[in-house]
Amino acid sequence: MKKSVFFGALTVASLAAGAVAAGTMDDVKARGKLNCGVSTGLVGFAAPDANGTWNGFDVGVCRAVAAAVLGDPTAIEFVPTTGKTRFTALASGEVDMLARNTTWTFTRDVDLKFEFVGVNYYDGQGFMAPKSLGVTSAKDLDGATVCIQTGTTTELNLADFFRSNNMSYEPVPIETNAEAQQQYLSGACDVLTTDASGLAATRASFENPKDHVILPEIISKEPLGPLVRHGDNQWGDLVRWTLNALISAEELGITSANIDELAKGTNNPEINRILGTEGDLGAMLGLDKQWAYRAIKAGGNYGELFEKNIGENTPIGLARGLNAQWKDGGLIYSPPFR
């Protein structure tokens, strides 16, 4: 008798425990560390340097969020994820957010129950081929062997592109970017396809980047952005507005160099609101007044992050293009801080 009572009690207790879900922000604060899902290593976007410190454009977003919540841009546990493992990692709570060149699509947003908080890079899928192959357009690729990273939207775009152009191809599915490079360089595939930014980053790490061309066709829209789980709006808001703070900072001319000066107070009320000298937007997020100040200070504003990691003066050498501020003809646009 006693045993069955015990089992019954155990069952009830464990069922009750299973259903509770705490707020992500409280979890992060209690842990003192942000678990941020990044790629397994894509130079410029997220890759560890010689000392094991993670650097890159996506990493910059993680650092800004960690700085805003915890006040320390280094209090991050980076979790490398592949195209296959990233969504499971986020859904299961292994990471608090994903900043891993992930394309915002309907099914991921709605069906997979994630929340894309914005776009930090407008990208599109392209092809890279060795110059010696003599290909100038993606339309010439009939019959080619194509290396693709499996578990990504590129796989589907590729199928659609070749199908709609009535061309055949041989897909070679590959798990990580490093393997893709190795297969491509050994000539096991003719072309490599992924997001154009990823191609540029991959090419930059080649011994002779000049021997490879990125074909002019962009065959898809790939808005890449950080994402969080559905259903925790407080956390989602925080990540969203941290990203917006970085974008607005560039628009308003707040840089990591002049931020201390501006934080003393300016004539521009929006700058004051962002930096916490006017009003208290931080309290609405459940943070202090200085949250955005710390986020911007961590790695600089959006433009600075771009130039430092993937801009034209880096080996990756991406132009701003679509990713310029809206005032300069790009698509990068933050809703106002008020």
């Binding site: 195209g83 296959k84 969504f87 099914t107 991921r108 069906d111 997979l112 499996t150 578990g151 796989e155 589907l156 599915p173």
Partner: peptide, 8 residues
């Protein structure tokens, strides 16, 4: 692999 990933 791919099916699991694309459909979640």
């Amino acid at each position: 692999g791919i099916t699991m990933n694309q459909t979640g």
